[in-house]
Design a protein around this nucleic acid. Structure first.
Length: 151
DNA sequence: GCCAACGTTGGC
DNA sequence: GCCAACGTTGGC
């Protein structure tokens, strides 16, 4: 799950009440579908910092709610307002995420260096999805790398 | 249903 | 700040 740390970082999640908040602002259908349909409470996700000086995995969070309509879509003053959404027919759904841990910054360049991660969705050429699936093998490999010294 | 124009993402 | 890549919009 990608977020720009200037907006919302892993530190913000750690500092939030209950160490959790709703993952607002996803406005891409594919990313929405992954969050709404493919996730379930208890799933873990990498918290990825994008659009910043050092993009990469910065920590781990846990999905901690069922999906429900993103409230920001209904708020005319919100930057994520969607005039085509109504409470009767919401377009955008989200889940709450809870802080699990920070990690060392596992940078994009480092991720790309590992052949084990060559097929990782988030690394695919031209990928712009802010939420992408991680395979079990990718998850295990990366968590192993997070335990290893930086290189 | 096609496709050009436009806006956004996100690494560099 | 640049720009490649991609999704969305809207005219036809």
């Amino acid at each position: 799950m990608k977020s720009e740390p200037d907006e919302v970082s892993i530190d913000d999640l750690a500092a939030a009440p209950q160490r959790a908040f709703p993952w607002t602002g996803v406005r891409n259908y594919q990313a929405r579908n992954f969050m709404r349909d493919a996730m379930q409470p208890g799933d873990l996700a990498f918290f990825y910092h994008s659009g910043c000086k050092e993009p990469g995995i910065a920590g781990i969070c846990e999905i901690c709610s069922d999906s429900y309509p993103d409230p920001t879509q209904f708020s005319a003053t919100d930057k994520y307002h969607d005039p085509k959404s109504t409470p009767e027919q919401p377009r955008w759904w989200l889940r709450d995420v809870r802080f699990v841990s920070r990690s060392r910054l596992l940078g994009l360049g480092e991720l790309r260096r590992h052949p084990e991660l060559a097929g990782m969705r988030v690394l695919a050429r031209g990928n712009r999805l802010s939420i992408t699936p991680v395979t079990a093998a990718e998850w295990q490999f990366i968590t192993g790398q997070l335990l290893a010294p930086s290189n």
